[in-house]
Amino acid sequence: DHWEIRVGDITIHLKDVDEEIIRWVEEALRNGDDLEEIKRWVEEVLR
């Protein structure tokens, strides 16, 4: 699977990601969370 999350001008590409993570990231972006923080979290989860 390949996911693209778009929020404003930001697009995040994710592969082999659980839908729950996608929802979490979308929510975090909508809440204005720091992008670097989100990326770190996702990388942590995917490890």
Rank of each mutant, 00 (worst) to 15 (best):
V45Y: 13
I12M: 06
V45A: 15
D33Q: 15
V45C: 03
D1Y: 01
I12R: 01
H13W: 03
L29G: 00
W3I: 12
G8L: 09
I12P: 01
D9G: 10
W41T: 10
E27C: 02
E26S: 04
V42T: 01
L29V: 08
R23I: 05
K39C: 08
E20T: 14
D9I: 07
W3P: 04
K15M: 12
R40P: 00
K39Y: 11
E26T: 13
N31A: 08
A28R: 12
E4A: 02
K15D: 12
L35Q: 06
W3Q: 07
N31W: 09
A28P: 00
I21W: 08
D33T: 15
H13N: 09
D18N: 14
H13D: 11
D1F: 05
D34W: 15
E44F: 01
I12E: 02
E19R: 09
L46W: 01
T11I: 09
R23C: 02
N31D: 06
R6A: 06
I12A: 04
T11L: 10
H2N: 09
R40L: 03
D1P: 12
V25P: 00
D1V: 02
E27F: 01
I5H: 02
T11Y: 06
G8V: 07
A28I: 10
T11Q: 07
R6D: 05
V42H: 01
T11H: 10
E4G: 04
L29I: 11
I38A: 01
I5C: 05
L29D: 00
W24P: 00
V17A: 10
G8M: 03
V45L: 11
E19A: 12
V42W: 12
E19T: 13
R23Q: 07
D9C: 02
E37L: 12
R6Q: 07
E19N: 13
E44W: 00
D1T: 04
A28S: 08
G32L: 10
V17G: 09
G32Y: 12
R47L: 03
V17T: 07
E43F: 01
N31L: 11
V25R: 00
R47P: 05
W41F: 12
E37W: 13
G32E: 08
I38D: 00
L46V: 08
I5R: 03
I22F: 13
A28W: 08
I5Y: 00
I21R: 03
V7H: 09
G32I: 12
V25I: 09
R47G: 14
G8I: 06
E27T: 08
D9Y: 01
H13E: 08
E36W: 04
V42E: 00
N31H: 14
V45R: 10
N31Y: 07
E27W: 01
E37R: 11
L35R: 04
D16Y: 12
E26R: 02
L29M: 10
E19M: 15
E20W: 15
R40E: 08
